[in-house]
Amino acid sequence: MGSLCSKASSDNFAGAGRPLGSAPAPAGTSSVPKTVKVGGPPRTLGGGPGASPHGESADGLIDARSRAAAAAEARAQAAKPSGKLGAKLEAQKKMSRTEALQAASSDEQRARDIDASASALRHD
């Protein structure tokens, strides 16, 4: 059943044999080009040829940090919602889990009280 889907195999005993305990025939070797240099000082991504071994110069590091900080500040300002709903959303985001659960519980209690008073007015 297993041979139904398998490839036709070559005969393992067709080649020349070797005595038991002897080493196998050496395989062909591949050559590595001598012109490729591997190693050197570590560099960070984007570090140019004039960069220091760590990839940044003193003024380049400060400049990169200030640009990253400015971009983060711009993203934070753009993400802030405005208006009444934005203020409510910000207040909800600042709530802890316990505060959020307490607020949901008080809302549910108020809804039950309103339903009970409406039921009493209808004389149910």
Rank of each mutant, 00 (worst) to 15 (best):
K93H: 05
E108Y: 09
A74T: 11
P42H: 08
S119E: 09
A25L: 14
I114N: 10
R43L: 05
S105H: 09
A104I: 00
P24M: 03
N12R: 13
G86A: 06
L101S: 07
K80D: 06
R18S: 08
R112Y: 05
L4Q: 13
A100M: 08
G55W: 06
R97E: 05
P41E: 08
F13T: 15
R110S: 12
K37V: 12
A100K: 13
A69S: 10
D11G: 05
L4R: 15
G21S: 08
P53Q: 02
A87C: 04
R110M: 08
T29F: 12
P53D: 02
D11I: 07
G83D: 00
K7N: 14
G83W: 01
R97Q: 03
A78P: 05
M1K: 09
K80C: 01
G50D: 09
S9P: 14
E90P: 02
A68L: 09
L85A: 13
A16T: 11
G17W: 07
A111D: 04
K93P: 00
F13D: 14
D11R: 15
L20V: 15
A58L: 04
M95T: 00
S22F: 05
R67K: 10
S31P: 05
A76H: 04
A72F: 10
A68E: 07
K34R: 08
V38W: 10
G2I: 06
A70E: 12
D113I: 12
A111L: 04
A74V: 11
K80F: 00
K34V: 13
G21V: 04
K37A: 14
T29C: 03
F13G: 07
G15F: 11
H54M: 11
G28W: 09
G40R: 05
G40V: 01
G39Q: 02
S57M: 00
R43C: 01
L85F: 13
L45C: 08
A70W: 01
S117W: 07
A68D: 05
K88C: 01
